[in-house]
Write a protein that binds this DNA or RNA. Structure first.
Length: 705
RNA sequence: GGGAGCUUAGCUCAGCUGGUUCAGAGCACCUGCCUUACAAGCAGGGGGUCACUGGUUCGAACCCAGUAGUUCCCACCA
């Protein structure tokens, strides 16, 4: 029974999402261990290129150092220094939560062997013809100066101005008015487009219009794409700065003028406002156009603007040279794996979402303009030749075949690194055998053959495509097998008002503070009490309070039992005998229910059933029934048979509680009796029903209550 | 614009194949209790038109249709 951890960002700190996620994994792994499986939970961290690089850049900035003033090597030294200093924090925090990982197996996605596997993967897929390089419209983050994937763009509703700008028509005193929210890209216009069925503009066929500011003449083109009902029904076409305009440009063979620089300023090519920030320019250009009488009107409009998930900067669609992985063929086995039930998504409702995405999957832009990460193993000579290989020497040998004059100093490696997900999609494979890509499944090491495929993956639905789907793809590609059988998708942790917990809102409690306040067991129980599978959970600290109260109750029950004075001479009261018989049946009945909840991954139900068995049935009824009488201010001794039965029950209950509350159960386990060295509840055997519950007896007891 | 889900007690949620576990649980609330395991507790108690409307059925929280509200995913609006 194996779980691989979704590796948290190496420089991150524990947040509520991790807490939920890892508590569930720990409950699963602890129970599996008690069921007698060789339970293996592999921990580790992710290098998270964009997030980590951004942090390092910010740290250096505080010290007065600019990234651009550093060499690649110097920057990476700083990054590693940072990683070595802070990289262990989150794992220590997981330990504090009680996560029973196989800590000796801890991996990092940029360990040398892990990185090598990433390069092997790139080379393998390149040689298979699945990786290509090309100019595409990508989502450009002008702050971190890198392309980001579609999935890393967050569209936010925002209030914008729709500016109606007049373009002069050729050989006429008339104007055509276009509506735009991005007047600062006017300098990049290479056409104006209208719908061919729009009669208002039929007379413009073959005409040219004049782009304001730069006074350049561009053609009027006709395309169904334009919605005649929006704005004026006329669209300015800026192929370099909008994906739709780019497509129009391709279709109508328009030139493309890149009017912006990588860091979001107006470029030389624009021919005006050069060097001005894009947002400053927007305001300025509106003002200038108004002065020239070229603004017809300005409307307020709500539209969605893409922001970078990592830096929150406004994303700029930008043409650039990137590496891509073809997804259509390689993703097919991964789609079938889920549709065919080979990989189960829990809850099932995510199958639809998965299917929809996998059927409409785009090629994956895998290059990032960063330094922190695995550098793309592509090499270029001075003649436009490209080869892909792991070392410079191999690359040189290959390039030499194409270019015999070449000297090794003349070849250059690609400057970009690979997307972080391009390493984490290998995670369930490479944590066991980093050579599997190179050697193939048939030559995989014993570890991988033993542990793979893993059993359960516990993660957030947000990364179903980023990560889960891609792991299935990689698993199928490199081993012909699924990487895991069950994917448990947790909800999103929200506050009690239903807002997503986030740093900026400041509504997220620090998990470590919660642990200090309520104990790790209390927080774990609190978390799991409010976490139905796949539904978001409205977290409130009062759940932790409930968890702590439960731990306290268990402790008090233990104190009572520990305080019993036993006596061989006492005879067992019939009431005690009846209570023992009843509780044994009750236990068996509830155990079956609890096991069933686990089997269906109904975690909070399994916990609640355990909670009620302990509190209501054991403490409130059973213990009250067998508790010896009080005579003359002194508790009477208890007969040995009842005491032994009670201790036995408590041990069985400790086992049931252990996955949820590892700390207190282990402590009580050892205080209850002298134990041999390896006799710990963590490795104790999960109870089995000694016999089927006697429902008649249970019903009779209900009446007696 | 396309798709999926959700709506049951004040809150968070169970309720599986339509019918004697069908109206439930935990928390919160109210009323008593500092009774030698436990006031972080104990004993008792109140509380729901199962979103709304209609349909199918001998029978509907459950099946069907529509409406409203809500959440999420995808596409992305110049």
């Amino acid at each position: 029974y194996t779980i691989v951890i979704p590796p948290p960002n190496v420089t991150g700190v524990l947040h509520m999402g991790h807490m939920l996620n890892n508590t569930i994994q720990d409950v699963l792994i602890r129970r599996a261990r008690m069921l007698g499986f060789n339970a293996c939970w592999v921990p580790g961290t992710d290098h998270a290129s964009i997030a980590t690089e951004a942090k390092v850049v910010a740290l250096l900035k505080e010290q007065g150092i600019q990234k651009k003033d550093l060499s690649r090597e110097a920057f990476l030294n700083h990054a590693w220094e940072w990683k070595n200093k802070y990289g262990g924090i989150i794992l220590k925090q997981l330990e504090k939560l009680g996560a029973s990982c196989d800590w000796d197996r801890t991996k990092f996605t940029m360990d040398p062997d892990m990185s090598e596997a990433v390069l092997d993967t790139f080379i393998h897929l390149y040689n298979k013809g699945l990786i290509y390089r090309g100019v595409r419209m990508v989502n450009w983050d002008p702050q971190s100066l890198t392309a980001v994937s579609d999935e890393e763009v967050i569209y936010k509703e925002s209030n914008s101005k729709l500016v109606y700008v007049k373009y002069k028509i050729e050989n006429s005193e008339d104007f055509i008015t276009v509506a735009t929210t991005r007047p600062e890209t006017i300098m990049g216009d290479t056409a104006v487009c209208v719908n061919p069925s729009d009669e208002r503009y039929a007379h413009l066929k073959g005409k040219k219009v004049c782009v304001p500011v730069v006074n350049r003449w561009v053609p009027v083109i006709f395309d169904e794409y334009v919605d005649a009902a929006f704005g004026t029904g006329a669209l300015k076409v800026t192929p370099a700065h909008d994906i739709n305009d780019f497509n129009l440009g391709q279709k109508h063979q328009l030139p493309s003028i890149d009017a912006l620089t990588a860091d979001g300023k107006i470029s030389e090519a624009a021919g005006a406002y050069v060097g001005m920030d894009r947002f400053v320019c927007r305001k300025q250009i509106i003002k200038d156009l108004q002065e020239q009488g070229l603004v017809e009107k300005i409307e307020d409009i709500k539209n969605k603007v893409g922001h970078s998930e990592r830096t929150d900067a406004v994303i700029e669609p930008k043409l650039s040279m990137q590496w891509f992985l073809k997804m259509d063929e390689i993703s097919k086995p991964a789609l079938e794996a889920v549709l065919g039930g080979d990989v189960k998504l829990i809850p099932e409702k995510f199958v639809n979402t998965y299917k929809h995405w996998m059927e409409n999957v785009h090629d994956w832009c895998i290059s990032r303009q960063l330094w922190w990460g695995q550098r793309i193993p592509a090499w270029y000579d001075n003649n436009g030749n490209t080869v892909v290989s792991k070392t410079k020497e191999e690359a040189f040998a290959q390039l030499k075949n194409k270019n015999s004059e070449l000297k090794i100093e003349q070849i250059k490696q690609d400057e970009d690194v690979l997307d972080t997900w391009f390493s984490s999609w290998l995670w369930p494979l490479t944590v066991f055998d980093a050579n599997v890509v190179k050697n193939g499944w048939d030559n995989a090491n014993a570890d991988l053959k033993y542990y793979y495929p893993t059993n359960d993956l516990v993660t957030a639905p947000e990364i179903l495509f980023f990560w889960v789907a891609r792991m299935i793809i990689a698993g199928k590609e490199f081993t012909k097998q699924k990487p895991f059988t069950n994917v448990y998708l947790t909800g999103i942790v929200r506050d009690k008002l239903g807002r997503k917990m986030s740093k900026s809102l400041g509504n997220s409690p620090d998990p470590i503070d919660l642990i200090n306040q309520y104990g790790a067991d209390g927080v774990r129980v609190g978390m799991m009490l409010c976490s139905p599978a796949g539904n978001d959970l409205m977290f409130d600290e009062s759940y932790c309070e409930q968890g702590r109260n439960f731990a306290n109750k268990v402790w008090n029950a233990f104190r009572l039992i520990k305080g019993f004075e036993s006596s061989n001479t006492e005879t067992q009261p019939t009431s005690s005998k009846a209570a023992i018989q009843w509780f044994e049946n009750k236990f068996n009945e509830q155990l079956e229910i609890i096991d069933d909840h686990y089997a269906k991954y109904r975690m909070s139900d399994a916990l609640m059933a355990t909670y009620k068995l302990v509190w209501d049935d054991f403490c409130a009824w059973y213990l009250e029934a067998i508790k010896p009488e009080f005579v003359n201010g002194k508790s009477m001794p208890i007969d040995t048979a009842t005491l032994n039965a009670t201790i036995h029950f408590l041990e069985k209950l400790l086992k049931l509680m252990h996955p949820w509350m590892p700390f207190i159960t282990e402590e009580i386990w050892h205080l209850l009796e002298e134990r041999k060295e390896m006799d710990c509840v963590i490795v104790a055997q999960w109870p089995t029903a000694t016999k089927a519950a006697d429902s008649k007896l249970l019903a009779e007891f209900e009446v007696c209550k």
